[in-house]
Protein backbone atom coordinates (compact mmCIF):
# COMPACT_ATOMS: atom_id res chain seq x y z
CA UNK A 1 0.00 0.00 0.00
CA UNK A 2 2.56 2.54 1.08
CA UNK A 3 4.96 1.42 -1.64
CA UNK A 4 2.38 1.87 -4.38
CA UNK A 5 1.49 5.26 -2.96
CA UNK A 6 5.08 6.43 -3.02
CA UNK A 7 5.43 5.29 -6.63
CA UNK A 8 2.27 7.18 -7.47
CA UNK A 9 3.51 10.39 -5.91
CA UNK A 10 6.91 9.93 -7.41
CA UNK A 11 5.57 9.86 -10.93
CA UNK A 12 2.75 12.34 -10.64
CA UNK A 13 2.48 16.11 -10.71
CA UNK A 14 5.63 18.02 -9.98
CA UNK A 15 7.98 15.12 -10.34
CA UNK A 16 6.64 13.84 -13.62
CA UNK A 17 6.96 17.33 -15.07
CA UNK A 18 10.47 17.68 -13.77
CA UNK A 19 11.70 14.28 -14.91
CA UNK A 20 10.14 14.47 -18.36
CA UNK A 21 11.67 17.92 -18.86
CA UNK A 22 15.03 16.69 -17.62
CA UNK A 23 14.85 13.67 -19.93
CA UNK A 24 14.11 15.76 -23.02
CA UNK A 25 16.62 18.52 -22.30
CA UNK A 26 19.20 16.01 -21.07
CA UNK A 27 18.96 13.88 -24.21
CA UNK A 28 19.27 16.88 -26.49
CA UNK A 29 22.15 18.34 -24.48
CA UNK A 30 24.03 15.05 -24.51
CA UNK A 31 23.43 14.71 -28.24
CA UNK A 32 24.73 18.20 -28.78
CA UNK A 33 27.83 17.47 -26.68
CA UNK A 34 28.40 14.17 -28.43
CA UNK A 35 28.27 15.88 -31.83
CA UNK A 36 31.37 17.83 -30.81
CA UNK A 37 33.43 14.64 -30.80
CA UNK A 38 31.48 12.13 -32.86
CA UNK A 39 28.87 12.03 -35.59
CA UNK A 40 27.95 8.97 -37.66
CA UNK A 41 29.11 10.65 -40.89
CA UNK A 42 30.70 13.89 -41.90
CA UNK A 43 28.22 16.74 -42.11
CA UNK A 44 28.72 17.57 -45.80
CA UNK A 45 29.66 14.12 -47.15
CA UNK A 46 27.16 12.69 -49.60
CA UNK A 47 27.14 9.23 -48.14
CA UNK A 48 23.73 7.96 -49.20
CA UNK A 49 21.36 8.05 -52.11
CA UNK A 50 18.99 10.97 -52.51
CA UNK A 51 16.07 11.16 -50.06
CA UNK A 52 16.55 7.75 -48.55
CA UNK A 53 14.11 6.71 -45.84
CA UNK A 54 15.41 6.02 -42.32
CA UNK A 55 17.33 2.76 -42.21
CA UNK A 56 19.99 1.01 -40.13
CA UNK A 57 22.74 2.83 -42.03
CA UNK A 58 21.04 6.23 -41.91
CA UNK A 59 18.90 6.45 -38.80
CA UNK A 60 17.06 9.57 -39.95
CA UNK A 61 17.38 9.05 -43.69
CA UNK A 62 19.14 11.40 -46.06
CA UNK A 63 18.42 14.74 -47.72
CA UNK A 64 18.14 15.53 -51.41
CA UNK A 65 21.91 15.74 -51.76
CA UNK A 66 22.38 12.38 -50.05
CA UNK A 67 23.76 13.80 -46.79
CA UNK A 68 23.03 11.94 -43.55
CA UNK A 69 20.12 13.59 -41.71
CA UNK A 70 20.93 12.14 -38.29
CA UNK A 71 24.32 13.86 -38.40
CA UNK A 72 22.56 17.11 -39.24
CA UNK A 73 20.11 16.61 -36.39
CA UNK A 74 23.01 16.12 -33.95
CA UNK A 75 24.82 19.26 -35.13
CA UNK A 76 21.46 21.03 -35.05
CA UNK A 77 21.10 20.18 -31.36
CA UNK A 78 24.46 21.77 -30.69
CA UNK A 79 23.51 24.91 -32.63
CA UNK A 80 20.09 25.19 -31.00
CA UNK A 81 21.63 24.98 -27.52
CA UNK A 82 24.38 27.47 -28.32
CA UNK A 83 21.90 29.92 -29.81
CA UNK A 84 19.35 29.46 -27.02
CA UNK A 85 21.85 29.89 -24.19
CA UNK A 86 23.82 32.75 -25.73
CA UNK A 87 20.74 34.66 -26.86
CA UNK A 88 19.15 34.35 -23.42
CA UNK A 89 22.45 35.38 -21.79
CA UNK A 90 22.67 38.49 -23.99
CA UNK A 91 18.97 39.26 -23.53
CA UNK A 92 19.29 38.83 -19.77
CA UNK A 93 22.43 40.95 -19.52
CA UNK A 94 20.81 43.86 -21.37
CA UNK A 95 17.32 43.33 -19.98
CA UNK A 96 18.20 42.87 -16.31
CA UNK A 97 20.56 45.85 -16.29
CA UNK A 98 18.13 48.25 -17.93
CA UNK A 99 15.20 46.84 -15.95
CA UNK A 100 16.90 47.45 -12.60
CA UNK A 101 18.08 50.88 -13.75
CA UNK A 102 14.53 51.77 -14.75
CA UNK A 103 13.19 50.64 -11.37
CA UNK A 104 15.70 52.89 -9.60
CA UNK A 105 15.49 55.82 -11.98
CA UNK A 106 13.61 59.04 -11.47
CA UNK A 107 9.99 58.91 -12.50
CA UNK A 108 10.65 60.60 -15.83
CA UNK A 109 13.45 58.26 -16.88
CA UNK A 110 11.52 55.26 -15.59
CA UNK A 111 8.46 56.18 -17.66
CA UNK A 112 10.65 56.77 -20.70
CA UNK A 113 12.36 53.38 -20.34
CA UNK A 114 9.05 51.59 -19.72
CA UNK A 115 7.59 53.17 -22.85
CA UNK A 116 10.74 52.21 -24.77
CA UNK A 117 10.38 48.58 -23.61
CA UNK A 118 6.73 48.60 -24.66
CA UNK A 119 7.55 49.93 -28.11
CA UNK A 120 10.25 47.30 -28.59
CA UNK A 121 7.92 44.56 -27.34
CA UNK A 122 5.27 45.68 -29.80
CA UNK A 123 7.83 44.80 -32.47
CA UNK A 124 7.76 41.02 -32.90
CA UNK A 125 11.02 39.52 -31.62
CA UNK A 126 11.60 37.88 -34.98
CA UNK A 127 11.19 41.17 -36.82
CA UNK A 128 13.66 42.92 -34.49
CA UNK A 129 16.08 40.05 -35.01
CA UNK A 130 15.67 40.25 -38.79
CA UNK A 131 16.40 43.98 -38.69
CA UNK A 132 19.60 43.39 -36.72
CA UNK A 133 20.72 40.64 -39.09
CA UNK A 134 19.87 42.81 -42.10
CA UNK A 135 21.88 45.68 -40.64
CA UNK A 136 24.98 43.51 -40.27
CA UNK A 137 27.25 42.67 -43.20
CA UNK A 138 26.53 38.98 -43.53
CA UNK A 139 24.37 36.42 -41.79
CA UNK A 140 26.35 34.29 -39.38
CA UNK A 141 25.68 32.38 -36.19
CA UNK A 142 27.03 35.33 -34.20
CA UNK A 143 24.72 37.89 -35.75
CA UNK A 144 21.77 35.56 -35.29
CA UNK A 145 22.59 35.19 -31.59
CA UNK A 146 23.12 38.91 -31.12
CA UNK A 147 19.93 39.67 -33.01
CA UNK A 148 17.87 37.29 -30.89
CA UNK A 149 19.47 38.52 -27.67
CA UNK A 150 18.58 42.10 -28.52
CA UNK A 151 15.13 40.99 -29.61
CA UNK A 152 14.49 39.29 -26.26
CA UNK A 153 15.93 42.00 -24.04
CA UNK A 154 12.91 44.35 -23.81
CA UNK A 155 10.67 41.59 -22.44
CA UNK A 156 13.30 40.66 -19.87
CA UNK A 157 13.79 44.35 -19.06
CA UNK A 158 10.12 44.95 -18.52
CA UNK A 159 9.71 41.97 -16.22
CA UNK A 160 12.87 42.84 -14.30
CA UNK A 161 11.61 46.37 -13.81
CA UNK A 162 8.29 45.15 -12.40
CA UNK A 163 9.84 42.52 -10.15
CA UNK A 164 12.44 44.98 -8.87
CA UNK A 165 9.79 47.54 -8.04
CA UNK A 166 7.91 44.90 -6.14
CA UNK A 167 10.97 43.89 -4.13
CA UNK A 168 11.91 47.54 -3.54
CA UNK A 169 8.61 48.14 -1.76
CA UNK A 170 9.35 45.39 0.77
CA UNK A 171 10.22 46.13 4.39
CA UNK A 172 13.50 44.26 4.26
CA UNK A 173 14.81 46.73 1.71
CA UNK A 174 14.01 49.60 4.08
CA UNK A 175 15.59 47.56 6.86
CA UNK A 176 18.74 47.11 4.79
CA UNK A 177 18.72 50.83 4.02
CA UNK A 178 18.47 51.85 7.68
CA UNK A 179 21.32 49.57 8.59
CA UNK A 180 23.50 51.46 6.12
CA UNK A 181 23.55 49.23 3.02
CA UNK A 182 24.42 51.04 -0.18
CA UNK A 183 22.23 50.57 -3.25
CA UNK A 184 24.73 48.38 -5.14
CA UNK A 185 24.94 45.97 -2.22
CA UNK A 186 21.14 45.92 -1.91
CA UNK A 187 20.85 45.06 -5.60
CA UNK A 188 23.38 42.27 -5.24
CA UNK A 189 22.27 40.76 -1.94
CA UNK A 190 18.53 41.36 -1.86
CA UNK A 191 17.08 42.30 -5.23
CA UNK A 192 18.78 39.81 -7.54
CA UNK A 193 18.18 36.77 -5.28
CA UNK A 194 14.55 37.73 -4.78
CA UNK A 195 13.70 38.32 -8.42
CA UNK A 196 15.67 35.32 -9.65
CA UNK A 197 13.05 32.57 -9.10
CA UNK A 198 10.51 34.46 -11.20
CA UNK A 199 13.03 35.78 -13.67
CA UNK A 200 14.48 32.27 -14.12
CA UNK A 201 11.16 30.84 -15.20
CA UNK A 202 10.75 33.69 -17.63
CA UNK A 203 14.26 33.26 -19.02
CA UNK A 204 13.49 29.61 -19.69
CA UNK A 205 10.43 30.68 -21.65
CA UNK A 206 12.67 33.09 -23.53
CA UNK A 207 15.04 30.21 -24.23
CA UNK A 208 12.19 28.37 -25.94
CA UNK A 209 11.33 31.51 -27.89
CA UNK A 210 14.97 31.94 -28.91
CA UNK A 211 15.21 28.36 -30.17
CA UNK A 212 12.07 28.80 -32.23
CA UNK A 213 13.12 32.22 -33.46
CA UNK A 214 16.50 30.84 -34.54
CA UNK A 215 14.71 28.10 -36.44
CA UNK A 216 12.59 30.76 -38.10
CA UNK A 217 15.62 32.90 -38.95
CA UNK A 218 17.39 29.89 -40.43
CA UNK A 219 14.24 28.92 -42.27
CA UNK A 220 14.27 32.37 -43.83
CA UNK A 221 17.94 32.01 -44.63
CA UNK A 222 19.06 34.57 -42.03
CA UNK A 223 20.61 32.14 -39.57
CA UNK A 224 23.86 30.25 -39.51
CA UNK A 225 25.15 29.84 -43.09
CA UNK A 226 25.86 26.36 -44.57
CA UNK A 227 27.44 23.95 -43.92
CA UNK A 228 26.18 24.52 -40.35
CA UNK A 229 23.08 22.45 -39.91
CA UNK A 230 20.36 24.16 -37.94
CA UNK A 231 16.99 22.57 -37.39
CA UNK A 232 15.34 25.58 -38.98
CA UNK A 233 17.40 25.24 -42.14
CA UNK A 234 16.74 21.51 -42.27
CA UNK A 235 13.03 22.35 -42.28
CA UNK A 236 13.54 24.82 -45.08
CA UNK A 237 15.51 22.35 -47.18
CA UNK A 238 12.93 19.63 -46.61
CA UNK A 239 10.11 21.92 -47.62
CA UNK A 240 10.13 20.99 -51.30
CA UNK A 241 10.13 17.26 -50.63
CA UNK A 242 7.74 17.17 -47.71
CA UNK A 243 5.32 14.83 -49.55
CA UNK A 244 7.92 12.43 -50.94
CA UNK A 245 10.27 12.36 -47.95
CA UNK A 246 8.26 13.61 -44.93
CA UNK A 247 10.84 12.48 -42.33
CA UNK A 248 13.16 15.27 -43.46
CA UNK A 249 10.67 17.80 -42.09
CA UNK A 250 9.09 15.79 -39.30
CA UNK A 251 12.29 14.95 -37.43
CA UNK A 252 13.78 18.46 -37.10
CA UNK A 253 10.27 19.71 -36.26
CA UNK A 254 10.01 17.14 -33.51
CA UNK A 255 13.47 18.08 -32.23
CA UNK A 256 12.50 21.77 -31.93
CA UNK A 257 9.27 20.79 -30.23
CA UNK A 258 11.07 18.46 -27.80
CA UNK A 259 13.64 21.06 -26.78
CA UNK A 260 11.14 23.87 -26.27
CA UNK A 261 8.64 21.78 -24.35
CA UNK A 262 11.45 20.08 -22.41
CA UNK A 263 12.90 23.38 -21.20
CA UNK A 264 9.45 24.61 -20.17
CA UNK A 265 8.66 21.42 -18.26
CA UNK A 266 12.06 21.41 -16.60
CA UNK A 267 11.74 25.01 -15.38
CA UNK A 268 8.21 24.42 -14.20
CA UNK A 269 9.29 21.35 -12.31
CA UNK A 270 12.35 23.07 -10.88
CA UNK A 271 10.31 26.01 -9.65
CA UNK A 272 7.78 23.71 -7.99
CA UNK A 273 10.55 21.73 -6.34
CA UNK A 274 12.29 24.84 -5.03
CA UNK A 275 8.98 26.19 -3.75
CA UNK A 276 8.23 22.90 -2.05
CA UNK A 277 11.59 22.77 -0.30
CA UNK A 278 11.11 26.36 0.84
CA UNK A 279 7.66 25.65 2.19
CA UNK A 280 8.93 22.71 4.17
CA UNK A 281 9.43 23.75 7.77
Amino acid sequence: MSASKSILTRFSGTNATFWLGLLLVGTITLTGLLSLVWTPYDLSDMVAGRLEAPSWQHWAGSDRLGRDLFTQLMIGAQIALIVGCSAVAIGAAIGVTTGILAAFATRFLDDALAAFFDILIAFPTLLTAMLVVAASDEASLGTAILALGIGLSPIVGRITRLLTKQVLSQDYITAARVSGSSWPSIVFWHILPNILPFLGVNLALQFGLAVMAEASLSYLGLGAPPPNASWGRMLQEAQGTVYTAPWGAILPGLAIFALVIGVNLLTDGLRDRLDASRRQV
Binding site: Q170, D171, Y172, T174, A175, A176, V178, S179, G180, W189, H190, P193, N194, P197
Partner: peptide
Amino acid sequence: ATVFQEPLTALDPLM
Protein backbone atom coordinates in the same frame (compact mmCIF):
# COMPACT_ATOMS: atom_id res chain seq x y z
CA ALA B 1 19.59 51.49 13.35
CA THR B 2 15.96 50.44 13.35
CA VAL B 3 13.91 47.46 14.48
CA PHE B 4 10.64 47.27 12.61
CA GLN B 5 7.15 46.24 13.52
CA GLU B 6 6.74 43.10 11.45
CA PRO B 7 9.86 40.91 11.54
CA LEU B 8 8.58 38.55 8.87
CA THR B 9 8.58 41.26 6.20
CA ALA B 10 11.63 43.05 7.58
CA LEU B 11 13.80 40.00 6.90
CA ASP B 12 14.78 38.89 3.40
CA PRO B 13 12.71 35.72 2.80
CA LEU B 14 15.35 34.10 0.59
CA MET B 15 18.44 34.69 2.70
